[in-house]
Design a protein around this nucleic acid. Structure first.
Length: 575
RNA sequence: CGGGGUGUAGCGCAGUCUGGUUAGCGCGAGUGGUUUGGGACCACUAGGUCGGGGGUUCGAAUCCCUCCACCCCGACCA
């Protein structure tokens, strides 16, 4: 490709709102352009990279016996009514009507569509296991798209669905897919991509992993133990905190005027926040009050709490709601609450710590030396749910090794999930087993965001000047910069090298624009092609051209008649 | 949905507070010329519903009302 003809200009200034490296360079380098909030067009450079990412995904999916299909983006609402998701999914599902007033939707994922396909196409246990996948557009009406291609509304995703006759078969295939994902992310040049335990959401119980590209701009928070034996999303991470188990001391009511927050109480009484307990009130999806107790220094993990309560929504309760339940906001206590009337959830940190300072359920008073097991009746405790609803903090002890956990930020580039029969059972998606009975498929599903992967590769492979593409996904293999192309020898050598490399199947970008050197070099940095050849009158005088790798500052002089073989070898080596 | 912010040329911005000829600047684009190893220079040219609508005024990018779009933080995220 001649750069003079390439559509998609490099831009000197970054977009005003761009924060992350990938956002800045994708726009500045001419890889993509915004069309609307969270909706982008891919320019030739971006499209070439995505096509290479997709090709790698295809190879690896085919290698684990995946069969590529293509399902529609527009689906009839009735299909989603079968699974119940037409009602249960929120406004991120874009619903609309066609000209006949029929309810339609833009697919955000394809479990329903694939079940509809599978129930007519896969009939017998003899056909199992089976995996269907597609690389296709998805639409999610995200509340807040951000960071360029990292969080968007319309995006290309590889989604795969596997069908099994047994849980064992699903688990075995899931493991194969996990390995395929590891190969994919390694092959696209992700330097740090780890799979972590993920929150399985409202489905509950099922196994799920997220593949996280480690990057500071990532939206997810991950906890890992130093030896890598434990890796989990903050949404579901657990830690092995050590609780104070000293002997219970007598209860003591103390005046604590004007101390509503944990910091105030702890400071006033001269204790650590970890020696206090706090009360947090939520209102669940049905509008019912939930009273939550947790050690003062620990935050409630709302993802865990939602899962426990089976409530997709939780909001902090108002003071009026708290008072209506007979509690005093800021000084609430379990001691005076009728646990039969209100739902109470207690974190283990609260239930197992000795001698906590808790509210006295009277304004400006607290109670010292609260001990859950001692101070609540057996009847009261029977009404209370004790569970892990704590948010893990950096440095908390790893649940496996006890070492302090490290906290990292990650971009979720892929996830895999043991679905079970959630969709197949709801949608009569069955096969005939050996005994002649119809049984729902046991399913797995497996996703990868293509554009997000491209962005994540930049986050992990860039310098201050632009992306440093790994050869496997680079838009071109070789970038020829012809300095002073008006000069005959420069033009002849460049054109010949360009033609020869192309004939050899090398993907070449040829900067034939005759611009100033600095201008061309800056563009080349933004395009990030791994191998660069600079052809100029200066070096041609000695019969040489200059060779430079994008990931290095070193320059090498190569004889003109050797440069072709040198480049073809370098490309072959890097691929 | 809550909080904050921004809308002026393709992109980045000034001008708005304090209303007053023809609305500017940089980048980018086109033409001609000089340049040619890390975003050169000169000359000329094209490009604007100042987010939309309504109002105040002799006069509105500027003041008032209203709607919209976009961005940031949070909530949400199969």
């Amino acid at each position: 490709m001649r750069l003079s003809q390439l559509v998609g200009q490099r831009i000197k200034e970054a977009p005003r709102d761009a924060q992350s490296a990938s956002h800045v360079f994708l726009i500045r380098g001419g890889y993509c352009r915004p069309v609307s909030t969270g909706i982008y067009s891919l320019l030739p450079l971006g499209q070439r990279i995505c096509a290479k990412v997709e090709a790698i995904i295809r190879e690896e999916m085919n290698r684990i016996d995946g069969q590529e299909i293509l399902m529609p983006v527009v689906l009839p609402a009735e299909l989603w009514e079968e699974s119940g998701r037409y009602q249960s999914v929120g406004p991120e599902l874009l619903r609309f009507k066609d000209r006949n007033d029929k309810a339609m939707l833009l697919a955000m994922t394809h479990e329903e569509a694939v079940c509809q396909l599978a129930r007519t196409e896969i009939n017998s246990y003899k056909q199992l296991p089976s995996m269907l996948y597609q690389i296709q557009t998805k639409y999610r009406d995200e509340a807040r798209p951000r960071a360029g291609l990292i969080r968007v509304r319309e995006f290309t995703m590889k989604d795969g669905y596997s069908f099994h006759a047994s849980q064992e078969c699903l688990e075995a295939y899931y493991a194969r897919c996990h390995e395929a994902y590891e190969r994919i992310f390694q092959r696209v040049g992700m330097s740090e991509c780890i799979s972590i335990e993920a929150d399985s959401g409202m489905i509950g119980g099922a196994v799920s992993h997220e593949f996280m590209a480690i990057a500071d701009c990532g939206e997810d928070t991950i906890f890992v133990s130093p030896d890598g034996s434990y890796k989990a999303n903050r949404e579901c991470a657990v830690s092995h905190l050590v609780y104070d188990t000293s002997a219970p001391l007598p209860l003591e009511k103390v005046a604590t005027p004007g101390t509503k927050s944990i910091e105030d109480v702890a400071a006033f009484l001269g204790v650590e926040p970890s020696q206090t307990g706090k009360a947090v009130f939520y209102t669940d999806s049905e509008g019912k009050l939930v009273f939550v107790c947790i050690r003062g220094d620990i935050e409630v993990n709302e993802a865990k709490l939602k899962k426990l309560l089976k409530s997709p929504q939780l909001v902090f309760a108002s003071d009026a709601e708290i008072e209506a339940a007979g509690a005093v906001p800021g000084y609430a206590s379990l001691l005076d609450i009728d646990c039969a009337k209100i739902r109470v959830v207690v974190d283990r940190s609260f239930a197992e710590s000795a001698n906590l300072v808790v509210g006295a359920n009277e304004a400006d008073f607290h109670t010292r030396n609260f001990n859950f097991a001692r101070d609540l009746s057996e009847a009261a405790r029977a009404q209370i749910q004790v569970a892990d609803i704590a948010t893990v903090r950096e440095g908390d002890p790893c649940p496996v090794t006890g070492e302090p956990l490290r906290m990292l930020k990650g971009i979720e580039v892929g996830n895999i999930f043991q679905l079970g029969t959630k969709y197949s059972a709801a949608m009569s998606c069955t096969y005939l087993d050996q005994d002649g009975k119809a049984k729902p498929f046991i399913m797995g599903c497996y996703g990868i965001g293509v554009g997000r992967t491209m962005a994540a590769v930049i986050e992990q492979n860039h310098d201050e000047y632009g992306p440093v593409w790994p050869m496997a996904v680079a838009p071109y293999h070789v970038h020829i910069c012809a300095l002073n192309i008006k000069q005959d020898n420069v033009r002849e050598v460049s054109e010949k090298l360009y033609a020869d490399l192309q004939a050899a199947g090398i993907e070449v970008l040829f900067d034939d624009r005759g611009e100033k050197a600095g201008f061309m070099f800056n563009d080349a940095d933004l395009i990030g092609v791994p191998l660069r050849v600079i052809i100029s009158p200066k070096t041609l005088e000695e019969g040489k051209v200059e060779f430079k790798r994008r990931d290095s500052r070193d320059k090498e002089m190569i004889d003109v008649d050797r440069v072709f073989s040198y480049l073809t070898e370098a490309v072959a080596e890097a691929l």
